[in-house]
């Protein structure tokens, strides 16, 4: 059993927010297994889901002992999760899932970049490796988007999905508790407020290139956002814990 790292409270909450976001994104993406628009896309999207779950696992390993990860990841009380609404959201249509993938992965890459010189042991290496995977995710989202917006109906549907997701976009930039301390300790090199600005500077020209209508966005977010669960979380959480709850003590 590998003991988790000795982390400061600030580092702990910083990593927890990221780990929970990745866990929720990976699990929500995985809901599309077998339902993707065509086989090759199904494989690519589920591979992205697995990458996100892999990132979540790598981060959880820094937070809790190896034999407690499953229970920690799946059976915490909903109030103890620190994921953002953008990651928790159920995207019940492919339009929404695609747009969220584009938006979230644009932000995720920036989050890893802010960790490539982290003072937390092993985190810099993880960030470099994860960012390599993210560059594939971004290419995937961008190429896919470029193609679906080429006809009128595609662009209209992406526009509608973007408008529906827009109110939640800012939540991914909600800072974790003790963000200032985390920045001082060198856990991360950039504040979430700065990441949000950089994200917007990447998002806006891409949205323009796709011919999309820019929705009203509020990118300022507070910690409360990470302490509140979205409607629908309870069902999702219950479904994630369904198997482990059959026998919580089992050694998988």
């Amino acid at each position: 059993m590998t003991p988790p790292l000795e982390l400061s409270a600030a580092a702990h909450s910083y990593l927890l927010a990221f780990a929970d976001d990745e866990h929720m994104m990976g699990s929500r993406h995985a809901n599309w297994i077998g339902l993707g628009p065509f086989l090759e896309e199904d494989l690519a999207f589920c591979s992205i889901a697995q990458d996100e779950l892999g990132h979540a696992l790598a981060l959880y390993e820094m937070l809790v002992p190896a034999n407690e990860i499953d229970r920690f990841a799946l059976l915490r009380a909903p109030a103890d999760y620190r994921s953002c609404a953008l990651a928790e959201l159920e995207c019940a249509t492919w339009d929404l899932a695609l747009v969220r993938h584009w938006i979230y992965d644009l932000a995720e890459g920036l989050r890893w970049e802010a960790l490539v010189q982290s003072s937390v042991e092993g985190l810099a290496e993880l960030a470099v490796q994860a960012e390599r995977e993210e560059s594939f995710h971004r290419s995937h989202a961008q190429m896919y988007m470029e193609r679906v917006v080429q006809d009128e109906e595609g662009r209209r549907r992406v526009d509608a999905a973007l408008a529906e997701i827009a109110p939640h976009i800012g939540t991914v930039f909600a800072p974790p508790e003790f963000e200032n301390d985390a920045l001082e300790e060198g856990v991360a090199s950039e504040s979430f407020a700065d990441l949000a600005l950089r994200w917007f500077n990447m998002f806006e020209p891409q949205a323009a290139e796709f011919g999309l209508t820019l929705p009203a966005l509020s990118l300022e977010s507070s910690l409360d956002v990470r302490c509140t669960r979205t409607p629908g979380f309870a069902d999702f959480h219950a479904s994630l814990g369904e198997v482990i709850s059959l026998d919580v003590q089992a050694n998988w």
Partner: peptide, 20 residues
């Protein structure tokens, strides 16, 4: 074999289908 809308997407999707 692989289905894709064009060559660029084929290159992207082929990795997950055949060389993960």
């Amino acid at each position: 074999s692989l289905q894709a809308p064009d060559a660029e997407m084929a290159r992207l999707l082929a990795r997950d289908a055949y060389s993960r």
